[in-house]
């Protein structure tokens, strides 16, 4: 690395710290930026700084946003009676891509993971309970259903069960997203666990 100019070495070192970027990729990106017009490099650096300066967590749903409350929480067209609980902000994008869900979100920023010592206090469950306790002026609960869309693995299941146990006394309908065979794959290749979940989650036609 000492053969390269100091600013280039510094940039490569910084790029290497990003996830999924190794020495070769960092070098390729650095040389691409070196050859790019000054304006496009400036736009990139401004975008990076804007990311840190203007983004924060929504005070209602904990999603990442540049306005507070976020565009989902402040959208009057969305149904406030249904809340979909997800582990990470990027999970919101996956659900939004379906264009079928018009409720609100709640982002936990993680999942309960006993093996990593992450318990319910380390993720944002308390703020979910506070949202569910909110009532309309006539005393009716604002939220009627909570959809638990955590990952279909041990940690996601543990988180879903913990939340379901907390929500039971509140009288809110709690549902879990379906699990099973991915669209486009073949039953022949499904493993036993996935097939079992698919059979459990079957629906009447």
């Amino acid at each position: 690395m000492n053969d390269l100019a100091a600013p280039l070495t510094e940039l490569i070192d910084q790029l290497k710290r990003l996830p999924g970027i190794g020495q070769k990729s960092a070098q390729r990106i650095a040389f691409h930026l070196l050859r790019a017009p000054r304006e496009s490099v400036q736009h990139l650096s401004e975008a990076l700084l804007a990311l840190k300066d203007s983004l924060r967590f929504c005070s209602v749903c904990n999603n990442i946003t540049d306005i507070d409350p976020c565009r989902f929480c402040s959208d009057a067209q969305r149904n406030p009676a249904v809340i979909c609980v997800v582990e990470e902000p990027h999970n919101v994008l996956s659900i939004e891509k379906t264009r079928q869900f018009d409720g609100l979100y709640h982002v936990l920023h993680g999942a309960i993971s006993p093996l990593q010592g992450i318990g319910p206090d380390q993720i944002r469950i308390k703020s979910l309970i506070e949202r569910l306790r909110a009532t309309s002026p006539d005393g009716q609960p604002l939220v009627r259903e909570v959809i638990l869309a955590t990952d279909p693995d041990t940690e996601g299941e543990a988180t879903a069960m913990y939340i379901a146990r907390l929500l039971k006394p509140l009288g809110v309908k709690v549902s879990r997203i379906a699990m099973g065979i991915p669209v486009g794959s073949e039953i022949e290749y499904a493993d036993e666990v996935t097939m079992l979940k698919a059979m459990e989650g079957r629906r009447e036609l």
Binding site: S113, T154, E157, D191, E192, L196
Partner: peptide
């Protein structure tokens, strides 16, 4: 390749306490 002989996911899904207990056994 991994072929499942017996899974604990269904058991872990029964109850939060069992799920944490299974994590303890694995740990």
């Amino acid at each position: 390749r991994c072929d499942v002989v017996a899974s604990m996911l269904e058991t872990a899904s029964r109850d939060y306490t069992i799920s944490v207990g299974l994590s303890y056994i694995a740990e």
